[in-house]
């Protein structure tokens, strides 16, 4: 299963990015192979529609879950229809490493 995590940087020690659509990076983590991919978010500075464009980006990687600080109104129905689960982590001090540890236990 693949999971996308919004990240402020491109390392394991980076903190979770609290914003979904305009996060700095997406970390795509594969729970089976434990492979990781860091994708710089091209929608970070777009004027409108960062949320749906970011859903399109991560959904094309076949992910089943997204972990972020918050999700906007426009994308909730979209993620529901794609069967992608939203997981909210409200603690802004969590690193990507810590989140992956949580997933593995």
């Amino acid at each position: 299963m693949k999971i996308a995590i919004t990240s402020q940087g491109n390392s394991l020690e980076s903190l979770i990015d609290q914003r979904f659509g305009r996060c700095a990076y997406f970390v795509v983590y594969d729970t089976e192979s434990r492979a990781m991919e860091y994708i710089p978010n091209p929608n970070r500075e777009v004027e409108e529609g960062a949320g749906p464009a970011s859903v399109q980006l991560v959904a094309s990687r076949n992910i089943s879950k997204i972990i972020s600080g918050e999700f906007g109104m426009k994308i909730k129905p979209l993620l529901d229809s794609l069967n992608i689960q939203m997981i909210v982590v409200k603690n802004p001090n969590k690193t990507i490493h810590e989140i992956i540890e949580m997933l593995n236990h």
Binding site: V46, E47, E48, G49, A50, P52, V55, Q56, A59, S60
Partner: peptide, 9 residues
């Protein structure tokens, strides 16, 4: 405006 959402696969 990112108003069209598409996932071709």
């Amino acid at each position: 405006y990112n108003a069209i959402f598409i996932l071709p696969p």
